[in-house]
Design a protein around this nucleic acid. Structure first.
Lengths: 112, 112
DNA sequence: AATTTGCGTAAGTGAATACTTACATATTAT
DNA sequence: ATAATATGTAAGTATTCACTTACGCAAATT
């Protein structure tokens, strides 16, 4: 059973769940109302999302609030970033800015 | 049969194939040499990658050269970008630069 | 105390996925 | 012409996936 972020966001329903809770925590039933599939199906999707760390559950009485923790998306973003200069010429200047900022942030003076 | 970029890059083998051909075109056998699975399996992965536009095939005699066309990764990048400010505080300053650049590029003076 | 609400999970199902081997088809080499 | 090479594709298979219904349990309501 693979369980990684790439896999997690491959499913459209899970991407929508992420979108729903990204800015506001919601409990499971509130999330499920936005979909045509059954509540247990949503529950299973959320389980997958928590297992790869994209969502954390905060218990409040009998309710479970789903809160987005999207740091893991970094893995995907970094993977894509390696190829960005190959497809997005208009970001060329941004790349340089990015490098400047990163170097300033953590390794001043390193790698050009 | 879903066929979208999120789905395509969910598979680790396909991500490696993309990585292989991203900077140099390679024919199918050359790609297959890098994996333990059979050549037809690679062929099927490449079919999926072409179907969602991440790879184009250039015929050269009996060989098929696979060339990366990663513009479609934009779809994934854009999706993630919406949430970036939620998880990458150290990119906050970059966000502003990004906005500045984008506004300068296409809608000068718009949004803020 | 009894009922309702919010949720997790087990078991079952059909479809999709990632592979395999076997075979067909072009192109190149001998 | 024959053989070797590079590839596509069909068919079969085991596993995973996304769902369903049924059930169980704790917290809240009545």
């Amino acid at each position: 059973m693979r369980r990684d972020v790439f896999q997690a966001i491959a499913d459209p329903t899970r991407r929508e769940i992420i979108n729903l809770v990204a800015f506001n925590s919601m409990n499971l039933n509130a999330i499920a109302e936005n979909f045509d599939i059954s509540r247990p199906a949503i529950s299973q999707h959320i389980k997958i999302l928590t297992e790869c760390g994209l969502i954390v559950i905060k218990k409040n009485g009998r309710e479970r609030y789903c809160e987005a923790k999207l740091q893991q998306l970094n893995e995907v973003a970094n993977w894509i970033e390696r190829y960005r200069k190959l497809w997005a010429e208009r970001f060329d200047s941004l790349d340089e800015l990015l490098n400047t900022i990163q170097n300033k942030d953590k390794k001043p003076g390193a790698e050009k």
